[in-house]
Computed example of a mutant assay.
Amino acid sequence: MSEITLHLSIHELCEYEEISQDSIYAMVEYGIVDPIDGKSVSDWIFDLDSAHWIKKAVRLNQQMQIDWLATAMVIDLLRQKEQLKKENDQLKARLNRLL
């Protein structure tokens, strides 16, 4: 069985999220997302995970009216929380197998 991966160009992300390329550039600059390919900004390609975090970052930036630096800090904390939850779930599953 082959794995299907979807990629989005910076233009598709801008259209989908109704944001400017400058906003995506800022998200990359602050480490919110990283393009998986592309030498120049106009050639950047993103995976679906990046699209997920861009959507969250845009919502935070617009609804909470915080700048991109603060948005990056919140996204980092959300990623850590997600990772800790995943690890906790795995440990609970291992513990349940032992009991």
Rank of each mutant, 00 (worst) to 15 (best):
D22M: 07
D22W: 04
S42A: 14
S20F: 01
I10N: 03
S42E: 15
L48Q: 13
E15K: 15
W44D: 06
I45K: 08
D43F: 05
L48T: 14
I10W: 02
G38F: 09
D49M: 06
F46R: 03
L13P: 01
C14T: 09
Y25F: 14
F46M: 04
E18H: 10
P35M: 12
A57W: 00
Q21A: 12
D47E: 13
F46W: 06
H52D: 11
V33C: 03
D37Q: 12
E12C: 04
E29L: 13
E17S: 09
C14R: 02
W53A: 03
I19F: 00
W44P: 06
S42R: 12
Q21C: 08
V41E: 14
A57E: 07
E12H: 11
E12Y: 02
G38D: 13
V28A: 13
M27S: 06
E12Q: 15
D47Q: 09
E18R: 11
E15Y: 13
K55D: 08
L13W: 06
W53L: 04
G38C: 07
K55L: 05
L48V: 15
K55S: 12
D34C: 11
A57D: 02
F46P: 02
S50K: 03
V41F: 05
D47M: 03
G31S: 12
H52M: 08
V33F: 03
W53Q: 04
I36M: 09
